[in-house]
Design a protein around this nucleic acid. Structure first.
Lengths: 212, 212
DNA sequence: CAGCAGTGTAAGCGAGCGCTCAGCGCGGAT
DNA sequence: ATCCGCGCTGAGCGCTCGCTTACACTGCTG
């Protein structure tokens, strides 16, 4: 998969750009802990221990436990937004855009289910200002999907009663993957993604079935 | 606050059978607090204050904060299971069963979105033994849905690649309603439910479209 | 009237929380 | 050789947490 030795379910190449190596290890440890127990049930001692440091080391790199969550959450949301934008930009028509979007969105939530869990389910633990930043990113993602669905309906490619609700359903399907997907799930991220792409296109009443 | 029957978003008739009135008020307060802030971020003082009592009063009716969560979670899961069973029992064929099931499941998660949030997203805060009880209820629900989808495929009513994944998707759609639905959502629970029923039948490639 | 079970409270205990701070080791520049 | 500053630690502060205890009030029973 990755090319670098690695081993274990933890994606080692997640934030290659995050500078002091210890800061990256803390983010990794934070993701692991927040995903497993939730933000509020995780102690700074948990995170530090997972990262192999003393509790005080966290505060050398992050001003607070909440700031660590924010770094993880913002980065994750930016990844999802960018992946969504790419799908829409590269597709030739709304149907292809939706298929590509759902496939990438689903595969990301399955492959990165640990981060995805934090991104999707721990955002309400963020302080007000930080919450506003990720809420804005989330609105961007939602608007993007809604626009594609509406363009598809306008072009006569989709037949749905309420485009707004249909767009919600499309995102719901992908988001919820983060809740139930584990490393032991029978289908791999790409297989699941392809399956979900099919399901969503049918759900939207896409006239184009398969084709190239 | 209450006293008078209903008014407000809080369903006053939720647990009419729960015996000492104060115990029911504590469960109501727990639901409200757990849904808003999450189990771990909620203090026993929060719950008591919302219920209009002193912190110690909680321990007159429940042996622990976790026991209160369990009472809420088990009751919610039992409601969902029973509503799912009814839909399957009363339907004439798998297509009608799925439509009815999705409609009831979705409407419940929308109308009771506060409890649904606790039921779907706070179960991992339960102690091991209590978790096992609700996990068993959840497996029952999943098996029920999977069986209906498989019967539909066997009868040639549905066309899906992988019934197991399709069943997951059906439940996902409904569960995720608890995450995003609010009292300010444009569509009411029943409207949303009907829309979702349509979407799911199309997603499963149901040959029967509408009809009575 | 006494006795008692059921329901509630004020006060506070021990533990663990997020976070701080004085200081230490070590690599690189002087 | 010395010094500086970054990365990190051990110790611990102040606070809030879940929960307990001792006690009070109410209404029912004999």
């Amino acid at each position: 998969m990755s090319g670098i030795p690695s081993a274990g379910p933890q994606p080692a190449d997640l934030w290659p750009e995050v500078q002091p190596d210890a800061a990256r290890r803390l983010m990794l440890a934070g993701v692991e802990s927040f995903a497993q127990r939730g933000y509020h049930a995780t102690t700074t001692r948990d995170i530090a221990a997972t990262a192999g440091m003393s509790p005080a080391a966290l505060y050398v790199h992050f001003p607070s436990k909440a700031a660590l969550l924010f770094a993880i959450s913002r980065s994750g949301h930016e990844q999802v937004l960018s992946l969504t934008q790419q799908a829409v930009a590269e597709a030739e028509d709304p149907a292809a855009a939706i298929r590509d979007l759902v496939e990438r969105f689903t595969a990301w939530h399955a492959r990165r289910h640990t981060i995805a869990r934090v991104v999707q389910y721990e955002l309400e633990a963020l302080p007000e200002q930080e919450y506003a930043v990720v809420a804005s990113l989330r609105r961007d993602i939602e608007r993007l999907v809604r626009d594609v669905v509406e363009r598809g309906v306008a072009a006569g490619l989709f037949t749905v009663g309420d485009p707004h609700t249909a767009a919600r359903a499309v995102l719901s399907l992908g988001v919820d993957v983060a809740r139930w997907y584990t490393d032991r799930t029978r289908l791999g991220p790409e297989e699941l993604a392809r399956e979900y792409g099919e399901l969503v296109l049918r759900m939207l009443g896409a006239t184009t079935g398969d084709g190239a």
